[in-house]
Nucleic acid binder design. Structure first.
Lengths: 121, 121
DNA sequence: TTCTAATATTAGCAATTACTAATATAAATC
DNA sequence: GATTTATATTAGTAATTGCTAATATTAGAA
């Protein structure tokens, strides 16, 4: 089986003779990355993350909730998932829980702000 | 309405007196980011992206397909979405289409490799 | 110890997603 | 032209997701 060649001969092949990739990548790291991305890929969760990232201090749930129009339960579920993805850290204080972003979350947010649709490079 | 205070007094409040965030963030940039993240948050699409990112050259669809166990149509749909999220660029050559990653995609992949679960900082 | 406030958990459902299978298009070869 | 190969598009469906509403838990206050 041939591998496709660079250059003009490529276009003159009669049929595709590509060598399929043998065994592609670390499957488990793909699943791990996708899990992280899926955690971020939800408006409620992502907005919570940005609200907390924008705050100078850590925030309690009661400060986050009013900014969103979903139920209390939904906010709690969102926070729990962000914590288990290592995007937020939780601190207990009496009846309240305070959340702040991890360095991981900050790195991702910074990148997304940089990579903002400037279109082509 | 009071804003929650730092320090020990916080734990002695009788009830939550947090000032809700007035108007949180640029809603449209949140939606844009979530759209990008949702494009990445799928095993088929993310694996395609990594396969192409790992290749020195750009790849044609026929090289990508065998590495995945989804139908041809699914691969085509995945590629189309990656292109419209500005994560892949498409080049036509006769009957074939060649894909390569954009700098945006590379930046995201690099970050995800760096931010790999080292747990705490 | 009872009450209330803050947050978490759960079940169930509506909406969304990602696939397959079938079909369409486009380009090269015959 | 007709055929073949590579890729795209579409309709329909199974699986997943994210919510609400209800309930549970935990901690401080009365």
């Amino acid at each position: 089986m041939k591998t496709p060649q660079s250059g003009p001969s490529r276009q003159q092949e009669a049929s595709c003779s590509c060598a399929p990739r043998s065994h592609p990548l670390d499957e488990s790291s793909i699943a791990t990355d996708v899990e992280l991305l899926a955690t971020l890929a939800n408006e409620t969760r992502y907005e919570i993350l940005r609200i907390i990232a924008d705050a100078k201090d850590d925030l309690c749930v009661c400060e986050i909730e009013p900014a969103l129009d979903v139920s209390q339960g939904a906010v709690s579920q969102a926070l729990a998932r962000l914590v288990s993805a290592d995007l937020l850290e939780r601190r207990k204080a009496g009846r309240w829980r305070y959340y702040r972003t991890t360095s991981r979350a900050e790195a991702i947010i910074d990148l997304l702000d940089e990579t903002q649709v400037s279109n082509h490079d």
